[in-house]
Design a protein around this nucleic acid. Structure first.
Length: 208
DNA sequence: CAGAGGATCGGCT
DNA sequence: GCCGATCCTCTGG
């Protein structure tokens, strides 16, 4: 039986907890939990260990050239899910990060699996190692069953996807250049939990 | 309407 | 480390 408390947990991160501003939010989200309630009511999620910041004045950001149909949720209020499809194969999940009218978001690049591991493995394949379950932005979305149906979801209110402060313990946060870009590749706007074994990208980008 | 490119992943060398 | 898959989105004509 599903109770209202399960559908609307009271340990959510809300707009009163989270900083407004893309790089501040990207750093804040390291150590925060991302939780997903699946259609059958089961819970999956993990601890965010890697993020990237994308702002309106950044040539690598989808919002750089103004609003389009794809990126319009980037221009809405903060703490909403921005989900898009890339390379014909993968979804990427972002958290919007600025006041309405400014197009910006934080890409969720990797999680340490925490809740519902058997279910996550169903999504990712039986031979997938625990380390690789949610290591990379496309894997996060596949493992947690995030697709464009969740684009625009309000993480403060939506029953399917939310942020939780968890233990509140903040790991040391490192900063590096972002991954996979052809433009503005030099900007240091990737944030990661120092020492985590669940980070994507080459080891050289994530020194302790 | 055609063309190009992409905030990736998995398999192979 | 390199390469192909795969398809959506945006841009320009």
């Amino acid at each position: 039986m599903t109770t209202a408390a399960q559908l609307a947990p009271d340990d959510r991160v809300t707009r009163s907890h989270a900083p407004l501003g893309t790089d501040d939010l990207a750093r804040f989200l390291i150590g925060v939990r991302l939780m997903r309630r699946l259609d059958d009511g089961s819970l999956v999620g993990g601890t965010i260990v890697e993020t990237e910041a994308y702002t309106a004045d950044d040539p690598a950001s989808h919002s750089y050239r103004g609003p389009t149909r794809r990126n319009r949720t980037m221009f809405g209020a903060s703490l909403h899910a921005y989900v898009y499809f890339i390379y014909g194969t993968a979804y990427c999940l972002n958290v919007t990060s600025e006041a309405a009218g400014t197009g910006a978001a934080v890409l969720i690049r990797a999680l340490e699996p925490l809740e519902g591991l058997p279910r996550i493995r169903e999504h990712r394949g039986p031979t997938c190692s625990e380390r690789d379950l949610l290591r990379g932005p496309g894997r996060v979305c596949q493992g947690l069953a995030v697709d464009r149906e969740l684009d625009g979801a309000d993480l403060e209110r939506d029953d399917r996807l939310w942020l939780s402060p968890g233990t509140g313990v903040k790991p040391a946060v490192g900063v590096s250049v972002r991954i996979g870009l052809s433009r503005a590749a030099e900007m240091p706007r990737r944030y990661y939990a120092c020492g985590s074994r669940f980070l994507s990208g080459p080891r050289s980008l994530s020194p302790r």
